[in-house]
Every structure is written in C-alpha cells, then in structure tokens.
Design a protein around this nucleic acid. Structure first.
Lengths: 123, 123
DNA sequence: CGGAATCCCAATCGATACTG
DNA sequence: CAGTATCGATTGGGATTCCG
C-alpha cells in the first residue's frame, strides 16, 4: 500500500492521476451522471441500482462510499425500518460532473473513430 | 468479435466507460499530455521515458502501443542502427487532449478539497 | 535504442451468502 | 432495504531478462 520507498517523490504532485484513479473505476462515472441528472433531488440506493445496468449491490455500495469519502456525494439515512438511504451530489460533485460531461461528449463524438482505428490495426 | 452472449446487451452503448478504461490506465494521461506539449513535434521513446517519472520501459511501450492502435498517436521508425522511434499525437489525439485538459484543470483546482474531505472522514 | 517475453504480485471486480 | 463479509477469477502493472 504505502510506497514506503522514498523514491516516490513526484507522484503526490500529480492530482490528475489521482483523479483518474477515482473516476476511472468501473461504476463511478455512471453513478455521478445519474446523481447529476436527478440533482438537486436525492436518489435512493435501490433506485440508483435500477438505473445502473449491471452493477452489483456490493460495487454500488463501494462506489458510493468512495464518493462520500471524497466529499462528492452526501449520504442521508432515514431512521426507519427498513432504513432508506438517500444520496445526492455535493457542490463539489456537481462541479466534477461538468468536467466529466466534457469527456462524455468527446466519447460520444469520437469513440467510433477509435474503434475504426482498432479494426484497421487488427489486420 | 461480436459478444453474441446474451448478457452483454447494454455495454456497447456506453462510450464513456470505454474511454475511461483507456485514459484511466496509469500512464496514459501523462503520456498524452507530454506529446501534446511537444506537438506538432515528435518525441522519441527515450525522451518520453525521461519526462515521465517512474514509468518502466515495458509500461511506456504498452501504453504507446495502445495509443497507436486507438489512432491517437502515430509511430515513426527511423531505419538506422540503433533505431529511433518517434511518436506524435494525431488530430484525434489532440482533440482528446482538449477534453483531458478540462479534467486536469478540475483536478488542480479541486483535488485539495477531495483530500480535505478524506482527512475528515478518517477520524 | 526500443522493444518483446516471462514471471509474479497486488488490486479490481463479480458472485454469493449473511445481517440489522 | 441497504448494506457487510468472504472467496475466487481476472486484470494491471512492476522487475527482469533477452533480442535485432
């Protein structure tokens, strides 16, 4: 875990890589997107799960915990039985969504070209 | 190959995830950034390696191959002994860099807040 | 010089089962 | 309902060695 080696002097200075480590995990960008679409409303766990095709209960839980720890999402528990848990983007999370939207646009406009390049390489 | 497998019906429609799978790999964004700064000039392998602290020979090689396959980077070999290999961003790669720059700006402006949120959670 | 091949470890992720 | 715990398969990526 901790790079005990003192050789690692440059890494901590690169915020971009650390950001990509977070939003690059499989379900993060989709989760942020859905929360952004709902904002400023909250979204319940089960609702979120339904809207993210293929996500497992565990991975959604892990993803949300990570987003909460990073200050991008708030978590609110209704103390009922059974409990209801509501998630919502913070202001910080909303600002990240704006940046992510740019990436999404690029992907929608250009990933076809990337695929085309790959097909040409395969032969 | 077509994944005619039944379960996989939703994935191909999500270009954003596929993009993040690529640029999310450890050395890709740094590589693109350096090539973008040098553009329209080419950059040699060893030069690139020097400018990316911590990257191994293998990982830089793998990263570049991937970028070339995706049509984001060109590779030019000077047929000398020893050979010289030059890399440069394509137009597609340059357009991706523009999108990445937005993410970089967000990271530089806001990752400190993310770190702060993490420290509060730790206690 | 710029790789390719191999080995190996660590992290990611999915499936399943259990809990308050 | 919304998690937590555990296991195993897969993948990313580092170190090392060899090659044209």
């Amino acid at each position: 875990m901790t790079p005990s080696a003192r050789g690692d002097l440059f890494d901590p200075a690169c915020p971009t890589r650390r950001l990509l480590d977070r939003i690059g995990t499989k379900w993060t960008s989709m989760t942020v997107k859905i929360l952004a679409e709902a904002a400023p409303d909250e979204v319940r766990f089960a609702n979120l799960r339904r809207r993210i095709p293929g996500v497992s209960q565990k991975m959604l839980s892990v993803t949300l915990q990570s987003l909460v720890r990073d200050g991008l999402v708030t978590r609110r528990v209704e103390d009922t039985v059974p409990p209801r848990v509501h998630y919502r983007l913070t202001a910080l999370g909303t600002s990240l969504e704006s940046a992510l939207a740019v990436l999404r646009t690029w992907a929608e406009e250009h990933m076809a070209e990337v695929d085309e390049a790959n097909q040409k390489s395969e032969r």
